[in-house]
Design a binder for these strands. Sequence first.
DNA 1: CTCATGCGCAACCTCCTGGTTGCATATTAG
DNA 2: CTAATATGCAACCAGGAGGTTGCGCATGAG
Lengths: 113, 113
Amino acid sequence: MSRASARAAGLTRAEPIFAALGEETRLALVARLCARGPQSITRLTAGSAVTRQAITKHLHVLAGAGLVHDVRRGRERIWEIDAEGLDDARLWLEKISKRWDEALGRLKKLVEE
Amino acid sequence: MSRASARAAGLTRAEPIFAALGEETRLALVARLCARGPQSITRLTAGSAVTRQAITKHLHVLAGAGLVHDVRRGRERIWEIDAEGLDDARLWLEKISKRWDEALGRLKKLVEE
DNA sequence: CTCATGCGCAACCTCCTGGTTGCATATTAG
DNA sequence: CTAATATGCAACCAGGAGGTTGCGCATGAG
């Protein structure tokens, strides 16, 4: 939580992050990178239903949303999660949920009066 | 958090929710429904860049993800947020983030030894 | 040096998505 | 009853997303 980027205040960055997570293969990639740590493309492709190229594309989408970053190591490229992105998304959800709870409180109060 | 549905344990429900939130117009709709409370389609369309029909479609997508529900009232249809969906998404993010933190801890430990 | 690995690039292809327009239907205001 | 309001339904469209295949290039293993 302490690592969440400050700009998470607005909903600016939220949409691309949700869009990136809103696809089965990518969501699985994120889950995998979180659970098993940094991995190469080939390794990430293993066990997946799609081609290495497809995985590569998905990784680039995730990178575009700031959810992962990569480092070249020898002849392979290692991809690692960027947890700040996840935090930003979570913060956005918290903020919006809270806003709804407040609205709900007002509505309830309005009915009671 | 107490309202989050239990099934949030797996990532089952997470993907459609993220997919629904991963579109500008829909994310704005969710934000608006949370901030200003239940509203009719026409009201939600006001101020939006797209057609009422487009808004209607988006609302159905959100409903499909369990993020909103609607009630007919007279000749208008009122849409309201279903905050459990937001909670589910948040819980998924928390779970995965935590998993990554643990993995990171293990990696750090591995390097130090 | 030679080969097997691990990737990157690019051309294609298909489907779904976001949006629109046109028209029909239901309700409430007067 | 009549008109205006609030939606619903369906056909249509362009563009982008997800996926594949084919081929070229760099790098590490022997």
